[in-house]
Design a binder for these strands. Structure first.
Length: 213
DNA sequence: GCCAACGTTGGC
DNA sequence: GCCAACGTTGGC
């Protein structure tokens, strides 16, 4: 067996912690899925997929294709129908959670891996043994207000200290604990907090500050 | 547009 | 199986 295969399996092992064996019996599990709301061309294909795009999809349902990271794939493999996911806008002006989607179809092979025209084509993936999976997600609702990354970060030392969004920042699909889920939804009910100003201060402000000390 | 963080690849 | 080089993610 080639070494490559071994690596896949190793990666698979890692997912164990956040799966899966206990199906939907004990209620839904929770996730966070990142998507880019702004147009960005990759090999002639627009990578944009916003919460509005999901909402406007046929049956408000879309294939979550293009995941090409083993950890993220493994997280998706642990998803069950009925599980919930925060829809997160990334790589944009104001990144953050904008809505909620429901998993409506469990992991199955991502067809874009076999499509040479697709930016996520994977020449090494074989039809008999696909490397990459996708799930289908359905729009549930938008949040009453966006919970920005900046706002979430205010809790990264406390309520959200274990969130994969912070501890594994580059994972595009990550698990969210029930506590994290309800904590974030509790933020939604609160009024929008004032923006934390941490943009580079103007020199005048800075001088003032130094005088204060 | 920059670049830090980090996942992946491949030589050894 | 180590690890340097490379590529990508994604906030800023």
């Amino acid at each position: 067996m080639p070494a490559k295969r071994k690596r896949d399996e190793a990666a698979e092992g890692q997912a164990g912690e956040c799966s899966s064996s206990a199906a939907a019996a004990d209620g839904p599990r929770y996730f966070l899925m990142k998507s880019e709301p702004d147009s960005r061309m990759e090999k002639g294909m627009d990578m944009k997929f916003s919460i509005d795009d999901l909402k406007e999809s046929p049956d408000q349902t879309a294939e979550w294709d293009g995941v090409r990271n083993f950890q993220a794939r493994n997280v998706m493999r642990g998803m069950k129908v009925g599980d919930k996911a925060f829809f997160y806008h990334s790589n944009c002006k104001v990144p953050g959670i904008v809505g909620i989607a429901t998993i409506v179809r469990e992991a199955y092979p991502d067809h874009t891996q076999f499509d040479e025209k697709n930016p996520h084509y994977d020449a090494k993936s074989k039809k008999e043994d696909p490397r990459w999976d996708m799930v289908d997600v359905k729009f549930e609702r938008e949040l009453e207000r966006m919970i920005s990354l900046e706002e979430l970060k205010r809790y990264k030392e406390k309520e959200l200290k274990d969130m994969h969004l912070f501890t594994r920042a580059r994972l595009s699909v990550s698990p969210v604990s029930a506590d994290e889920w309800s904590f974030i939804l509790s933020l939604e009910k609160q009024p929008e907090p004032p923006k934390e100003k941490k943009k580079r201060k103007k020199k005048a402000d800075k001088d003032d500050e130094e005088e204060d000390e």
